[in-house]
Every structure is written in structure tokens, then in C-alpha cells.
Design a protein around this nucleic acid. Structure first.
Lengths: 142, 142
DNA sequence: CAGGAAATGAGAAGCTTTCGCATGCGCTGG
DNA sequence: CCAGCGCATGCGAAAGCTTCTCATTTCCTG
């Protein structure tokens, strides 16, 4: 199961790493912060340190297992890498994050990079707006 | 001259604010960090505090005089707002930043936000790549 | 099963950015 | 032109997120 993914990344299979991976799987499309992972695991009875969470998430990112996103709030959020690239649309009022993918935009980006002599690596497109159901009173819940 | 822009923003015209504005004008398209503004002004013989630089830049941003960008490095960079929106392509090797604007992409973004019921506010598109002349040995010069 | 390398937890430290407060300065009304 | 109020400044302290340090524990190979 998850053991293999961790081993494939060249990392030892340890309890913290397994737990974090499980948690991320359970979170699905939801984006979680390191702090949140930490608190959820503590609440789950795990004995884990915040530093370990950061370390492991960084290692997972390097191994391509998870993706790290930085929105304007300043801190990072993580999600399992499901292989398919996507961009984000964020509601500035309630903090909700949706994902999307638009081939027209992807294509134009490749062209723009090529025109300017860049070997394209990655990109980040984030649309900030206000979602329709912005009655949402839960501002910045982190 | 610049006095008017500051006054229009509802701010008192003071030496620090004038100097920062001048400096940004001199920088043109270059993106500078708060720290950099601070050091450049000190080097120029100004007596200024880092906190003031941050405060003034934040006020200028609120007034629409400057734009703040956050790249993946973690800290913010600023540039004078010349009125025309643009996106960025950043070289991950040398840190060079170029600007571009693509109407096809802009258009698709508006459509995507509309489709999903968002009142679009702003957006941030950053392409990370490696530029052709990446012999550039000046990694992260901040 | 033993030994060595790698991983962990806790706290300290780092970095950017903001805050609090006493002092200083720009600006408006007299 | 001057006085006085209040915003602006500078400094140091502090906040918030993330990384580092290091002694201890855990995993894994042989």
C-alpha cells in the first residue's frame, strides 16, 4: 500500500510518514496547512512534532508525492499529487479553493515561454474572486 | 510632481515617502524587495527605518500606487503600478523576471470565473522556467 | 539480532513582516 | 508666519510561519 510510495521516494517507512500520507489521502481535494496536519494527527492520538510534519511534507514534495501551494495569505497548503496538473480559483471572502484546468490557457503558456526563450518548468495560476455563496461567515479559518 | 500622487492617496508628503517613490520610479520594471528599498535608501544617505519602508509600501499598495508580488521565494517584491495589468515569467535559475500579457489567457480566465459563479477580483499567473541565457551564475541575489 | 544510518521530537533560531510607543514633523487655521 | 494637533517615523520588540540543532529513538541491512 502506501509503504511502496514512501519507499519509492527513497525514504524509510516510519509511523509519522505513513500517518501523514494517510491523512492527506483522507483529505482528498482539500488543501491542508502543515499546522493543520499537525493538529489533526495530535487529535488522532499520534505523538508527532510540528517540525517532523514540515520535514516530511517537504520530502514528499521533493519526491513528487504532494504539491505545495502558496496563496496570498502567506502560509503553505498541501495536497496529494494526483498526477494531473491544475490551477486554482480562490474565494477571498471565505477561503474556499476550487481547482480547474483549461487547455487553451495551458497551450498559450507553453507558447509564451517558448517565444521568450524559456524552458518551461512549472507555473502557477491563481484567480482570486468572491464566490456566489459568499454569505459564508467563516473568514480565514486556516 | 510626485507630491500630488502621494497627496491624492490621502497621505502626508514626507521625505521617506518621496524617496521611496523616487526610487521605485528609478527602478522601472525591476522588482525590488522591501529590504532592498531599505538598503538602497540607506546607501543613498537617507535615514530611514525598515518598518517605515514596509508601512509606506503597504500604504502605496492600498492606494494603488504600487503592486506587491509574492513569488515562491517567500518574500514580497514591489513595482510601480503603471496601470496595465500583466503576468510574470520567472527564471528559477537566475531570478530574472519578465512581464507579459496575453489577451487569450485573460479572456479564458474571465470565462472560467463566470462559469463557476465567481465575481473575479484579481489573479496571479506566474510561469516558472529556465531562461536561455542561464549561464547566469547569480543565483538568488535578493 | 546487533550496529549504523536515518528519522524524530522539542525547543531554539531564522526570516520576513508587523506592532507599540515615544519623538518628530507636515499641515491647517489663526 | 506661527502654533498646535495628529499623523508619520524610527527603533526595538514581537508575531507568524518555517527550518535548524541535537540528543534520542527507530528502521533496516547483514
Amino acid at each position: 500500500m502506501e509503504d511502496q510510495e514512501i519507499r519509492k521516494a527513497g525514504l524509510k517507512v516510519t509511523a509519522p510518514r505513513l500517518k501523514i500520507l494517510e491523512l492527506l489521502e483522507k483529505c482528498g481535494e482539500r488543501h491542508v496547512s502543515a499546522e493543520e496536519v499537525y493538529r489533526l494527527l495530535l487529535a488522532d492520538g499520534e505523538e508527532i512534532g510540528l517540525a517532523t510534519v514540515y520535514r516530511v511534507l517537504t520530502q514528499f514534495e521533493a519526491a513528487g508525492l504532494v504539491e505545495r501551494h502558496k496563496f496570498e495569505d502567506g502560509y503553505s497548503v498541501f495536497e496529494l499529487n494526483r498526477g494531473e496538473h491544475h490551477d486554482h480559483i480562490v474565494c477571498v471572502t471565505c477561503g474556499k479553493v476550487e481547482e480547474f484546468l483549461d487547455e487553451t490557457i495551458e497551450q498559450r503558456q507553453r507558447e509564451i515561454a517558448a517565444e521568450r526563450g524559456y524552458e518551461i518548468g512549472d507555473h502557477s495560476l491563481i484567480i482570486y474572486g468572491r464566490c456566489r455563496d459568499s454569505e459564508c461567515p467563516n473568514r480565514s479559518k486556516k
